[in-house]
């Protein structure tokens, strides 16, 4: 298939997934903020979201204090912030529009409808209805898009590159959410009810709360949360599951110049496959996740070079 077409499909999927995960991250932060805490501690959590995306400078150009409302406005509706949910869904729609002939009518229409509905909601309206409801809507629209895509599209290269984009983005995003929240939670210290709610919110934001109960049948401990979200291959948003999918898709679309990218993906997969969570925590989770995100970035680079924007 045409490289540019693959590129648009890949980014359509990445931006849709990014919007969903951003909604998940904002949702968990919002839920955690509902537990009694000091204003400073609350603002620290909102500030962490900006730091996570290296957006402090862009944020401070328009906003003064990194409090709940400002960060939400900036990350939800700000058209000038390229990382906002608004901008992500717009970019997803623009990419879909460029290749609408490749998509099934249902896929295109669900993507387009998401954008049209989003454009009709002002931030004030979102606030008045409740941000939680809005985040549910974003997750739902992403689920609709995914369902329609996998339910209607021919299983050819077009679908492979959509899948590749979605998986790559999700692996990065799960790592980010875990990285930012794990630290906040660990430094908060004491065991107790607060902690339970906080970890519960993190798991819920990744649709992993019930999964956790089912898998461990035990109290929530940070190490197990990390294990579930990183190493369980049967947990659809875990790093292991994402990289597992990336390796499979890369095998399907491989061409004469993609061997190195395939090798790197395979190596990353093997490391997750044979890793033990105690070793990772012993050496430092933050370091591990930073390295993981670098390698996902590197994979994205390779995929771009090999398939999407090849030199002559």
């Amino acid at each position: 298939m045409l490289s540019r077409t693959a590129d648009h499909l890949y980014w359509m999927a990445r931006f849709t997934e990014r919007a969903e995960n951003l909604a998940r991250l904002l949702d968990v932060t919002h839920q955690m903020s509902l537990v009694p805490q000091s204003v400073a501690a609350g603002n620290q959590n909102w500030g962490a979201i900006l730091a996570l995306n290296s957006l402090q400078t862009a944020f401070s150009k328009t906003y003064d204090e990194a409090n709940a409302e400002n960060v939400l406005r900036f990350m939800v509706s700000d058209a000038d912030n390229p990382a906002s949910i608004y901008s992500c869904l717009r970019a997803a729609r623009e990419n879909a529009h460029a290749v609408r002939g490749t998509l099934t009518a249902e896929t295109w229409e669900s993507c387009n409808a998401t954008w049209i509905e989003l454009r009709e909601q002002s931030f004030e309206q979102i606030l008045s209805v409740g941000v939680g409801e809005f985040f549910e809507w974003v997750k739902l629209r992403s689920a609709v898009m995914r369902g329609v895509t996998f339910g209607t599209m021919l299983q050819d290269d077009a679908l492979h590159f959509i899948r590749l984009g979605g998986l790559l983005e999700r692996s990065d995003n799960t790592a980010r959410i875990l990285d930012v929240k794990y630290h906040v939670l660990r430094t908060n210290g004491d065991e107790g009810t607060t902690d339970f709610y906080q970890w519960g919110a993190l798991l819920r934001s990744l649709s992993a709360f019930e999964v956790y109960r089912k898998v461990y049948r035990d109290v929530i401990t940070p190490a197990r949360v990390a294990e579930l979200l990183m190493l369980r291959v049967d947990m659809p948003r875990s790093l292991h599951a994402c990289v597992d999918g990336i390796v499979r898709v890369l095998n399907r679309v491989a061409n004469s110049s993609s061997a190195e990218t395939g090798r790197r993906a395979g190596m990353l997969h093997a490391q997750l496959h044979y890793a033990r969570i105690d070793d990772i925590l012993g050496k430092g989770l933050h370091e591990y996740l930073t390295d993981f995100m670098d390698r996902i970035y590197d994979l994205g680079d390779g995929i771009g070079r090999d398939f999407l924007v090849p030199a002559n």
């Binding site: 298939m1 490289s3 540019r4 077409t5 061409n255 110049s257 002559n312």
Partner: peptide
Amino acid sequence: IELVEGRDLFVRDETVYMRTTQGP
């Protein structure tokens, strides 16, 4: 058929190619 833009095509040795995920 493929819907291409100018940037999807290139000319080498007086032959036109399109950039695809499987090479030119």
